[in-house]
Computed example of a mutant assay.
Amino acid sequence: MWDSDTEAEPDPPDWSKNVPDEVLKQLSPREKKRQEIINELFHTERTHVRGLKVLDQVFYRPIREQLVLPPDQLELLFANLEEMLIIHSQFNNLMKAKRKESPIVGDIGMLLQFFFVQFEGEAFQKAAVSFCARQQIALDALKEKRKKEPKLHNFLTEAEMNPVCRRLQLKDIIPTGWIRLTKYPLLLENLSKHTPSECEEFTNLQWAIERSKEILSHVNKAVKEAQDEHRLAEIQRRLDRSQFDKVDHPMATEFRNIDLTKHRLIHEGCLNWRIANRPKLIDLHVLLLEDVIVLLQKQDEKYVLKFYNPTLSPVIKVSTVLVRPNAVDKKALFLVNTSQNGAQIYDLVTPSYAEKRM
């Protein structure tokens, strides 16, 4: 069930203890620092593999065998854990083999090239995206489910008491996959600082650094997209468009069955809407989607889509919008909808600025 990786300590061991004194004395301060960084890189990869094995043996397999979670939630939480374990174990084994060659670790640029750039590069990126993209969504769902289901709570509590978890809960262990991705560029950049720039090793390190950054960027983008999709699905479930559908207006007809999940979220936030002949500002929750702007009003647990003015639609096509600053109120702006005869002007202001004025 377990192997030597389970014995990996949280902190890197002292690499110099395995180096003969006469060899250690001949090393320059630069080379000693380089060996220290390599030691940290190798050790933290081993501890990461250990963490993946803990996830697999203490949580994933028992949950699957005991049917603690339904298959779809199990898949959402652990995704392709087995694939990630295989990939990182291969990397870890390459590092172990490299260390066995000599007490002083030589060039590792080709090893890093293999993992980040060549054979494993694309496979690793694809696997990392699958593993990380929906993790936070899964953890949020697990948190709520744990509150409601004693069987799940008791199982996780007992599993988290296992000494191999080192007092960490499942919610602390799962994100280590993404955290590991953030560490690679930092460690490799630090390593390159202590590597002569005129040698091939430095060039190989630069390739690995750039590729590790690309992989992290790709994963971060996938995480954001997954969270945005989840957010739109949540708003769609709570969307009340009953009043919107009743209005006889071209935009109401076109967007009568609006499905937010079919759009891409760019930004969301709060604004106040000033409408002529209305004494009070209207609090809005605004969705800026790739092709439309949606002006919602949050009421209790619902997001209400409705007309506040016969001519001003709460759904606006981005392709028809002109944005103009308000010359009087510097923290306000006008949205000018040019899709209909005559310009339709939306006077919007940030909530904090509205509070100051009032």
Score class of each variant (00 low, 15 high):
R99T: 07
G269P: 12
Y60C: 06
K151P: 12
L265D: 03
T311Y: 11
P20Y: 04
F124D: 02
F59C: 08
M358V: 11
D300W: 13
L191A: 04
D228F: 01
R256M: 11
L284N: 08
S212V: 08
V294G: 04
I108L: 02
D5P: 11
K262V: 02
K317C: 05
L288F: 14
E200C: 01
Q73W: 14
S319D: 03
R99E: 12
D14M: 06
R231N: 09
V323Q: 02
F42H: 05
Y346E: 10
H249K: 07
S16R: 13
P279K: 01
H285I: 01
P351H: 06
F114A: 02
I108C: 12
K17G: 10
Y308N: 06
E75H: 13
R324W: 00
R241L: 01
E122V: 10
V286T: 00
Y346A: 06
L348Q: 05
E75Q: 13
P314V: 00
I293W: 12
K126N: 12
R357P: 12
H263Y: 14
G51Y: 01
E144Y: 00
I275F: 00
E120W: 07
T44R: 11
P150R: 14
I282M: 04
L333T: 01
H249Q: 08
D56T: 04
R30L: 15
N220P: 01
R278L: 15
T176F: 15
E65I: 09
L295C: 04
E82Y: 08
L24T: 12
I209S: 09
K96T: 10
L69K: 03
E234G: 12
D228R: 04
L265T: 00
E144F: 05
Q35R: 00
I173C: 03
K25T: 15
R180W: 14
E31I: 15
Q340M: 15
P314H: 08
N341V: 06
L288D: 08
M1K: 15
I173K: 04
T176E: 07
Y184Q: 09
W15C: 09
T47P: 03
W273H: 05
L81H: 04
I173S: 01
I293K: 06
K183L: 09
M358L: 06
T6K: 10
W273M: 12
S28P: 13
K143W: 11
V304M: 10
I86N: 13
Q90C: 13
K25W: 07
E122Y: 01
I37N: 00
R231M: 05
Q66M: 03
L41T: 10
K151W: 02
P185F: 13
S4N: 13
A332M: 03
R324P: 05
A276H: 14
Y346M: 14
R238E: 09
N93E: 15
Q344Y: 06
T311G: 08
V19Y: 10
L348C: 05
V117C: 11
H48I: 07
M251F: 14
L139Q: 04
T182C: 07
I179C: 02
I87A: 08
E268W: 06
D240V: 01
Q57N: 01
K32S: 04
K17F: 02
